[in-house]
């Protein structure tokens, strides 16, 4: 098997699929939904398809959904025309049978070894991009995974982190073994966190420049365009899918661009380059943009340009260029406390 050029690791619930599992009722509804009932976030399908279409690109889905839902989830992905190379789900039935109720909701002890084993189990890619959400501990897990494979976290520190994450002894053993096996490399270039809970973005600054919180998949597309992983036409198709969903309108997409610029997560030169490339698409392949339901291309371009101009050159909020070593034990403890508070408040957002 040829080694992939780039691996995209996706979470499913609240990242790709609009899922509610904050109450018992939600869990039941989720369990009995058919593939056709399940809804992807607007733009996520087009983005996943675009990423998978790249040469040497590999899509791995690692979800905390129970493995009993594999059939329905795989059917949903098939309905959406999303192809994947790996699909890992959590065996919660096994956890219940063994009376390991802590493991039902635990994130770090499940997802971290799954990520490491995925990397260890296939030819290593030189680059990875990870997609998660703000509902649980994805930001912590993904950064920990990135730092582990980059060789920035010592094995004895990992053991302490797993202890803080309330991992069972066999989970600790399994994770340490996977971490030993996973090929080393500073390969995680980008972590995209979908703000399902609309968490304040400032809370993610500590994770450094690699992590970008996004409100929607147009923002994710812009970031990946700047990273060179999508071209202008692909960005356009993602925007079209969002508009087709009727949950987004052009001004909202334009605001999304302005928000990223204000947060210093998308530079104005990238915006100008994208505009130039889209103008070229409009000139050379006008049929790409010819939609009776859209205003002329120049009007669209103007809407986006105006959003940038409205800021009148105000400096964007500095986002840290470098990152201090993260105290994962403290982060895991904090996440544990937050989860308990959320539980007491009936899953209200932080």
């Amino acid at each position: 098997m040829n080694p992939p050029r780039h691996v995209f690791r996706w979470d499913l619930d609240k990242t790709y699929l609009r899922t509610e599992f904050d109450s018992v009722g939600d869990l039941f509804k989720n369990a009995f939904e058919t593939a056709a009932d399940k809804q992807a976030y607007p733009g996520a399908t087009a983005l996943l398809r675009a990423l998978r279409a790249g040469e040497g690109h590999r899509v791995c889905i690692i979800s905390g959904s129970p493995s009993q839902m594999r059939t329905v989830l795989a059917a949903k992905l098939a309905l959406d025309g999303v192809e994947f190379d790996e699909f890992v789900l959590k065996n919660n039935l096994k956890n219940i049978m063994r009376g390991r109720f802590r493991a039902l909701r635990a994130q770090v002890p499940y997802k971290l070894p799954a990520l490491l084993e995925s990397r260890a189990g296939s030819p290593p890619a030189p680059a990875e991009t990870l997609f998660g959400d703000d509902a649980e501990a994805d930001a912590i897990i993904y950064c920990l995974y990135a730092d582990l494979v980059a060789g920035k976290v010592a094995m004895n520190d990992l053991a302490r982190i797993l202890e803080a994450a309330r991992a069972y002894p066999d989970e600790v053993t399994r994770t340490l073994a996977a971490a030993e096996r996973a090929p080393r490399g500073d390969v995680v270039g980008r972590v995209i966190i979908h703000l399902d809970r609309r968490s304040p973005t400032a809370g993610f600054r500590r994770f450094g420049p690699r992590l970008v919180p996004v409100y929607n998949y147009f923002q994710a597309a812009l970031v990946l365009y700047a990273d060179g992983l999508l071209d202008a036409r692909q960005v356009l198709f993602i925007a079209f899918e969002m508009l087709d969903s009727r949950q987004y309108q052009l001004p909202i997409l334009a605001n999304s661009l302005q928000d990223l610029i204000r947060r210093n997560r998308f530079a104005q030169p990238s915006a100008l380059r994208l505009a130039d490339e889209l103008r070229e698409v409009a000139r050379t392949a006008p049929s790409t943009l010819a939609r009776a339901d859209l205003p002329p291309f120049e009007d669209i371009a103007r809407a986006f340009t105006d959003r940038v101009r409205e800021l009148k050159g105000a400096p964007p909020l500095p986002w840290p260029d470098t990152i201090a070593p993260l105290d994962y034990v403290a982060l895991v403890d904090e996440e544990h406390d937050n989860r308990r508070k959320r539980g007491r408040r009936g899953a209200a957002p932080p």
Partner: peptide, 15 residues
Amino acid sequence: LPRLRHDGARVRVHH
């Protein structure tokens, strides 16, 4: 804004 829960796509800033 980044310190607050909000929907960044529904908020626009005009200087």
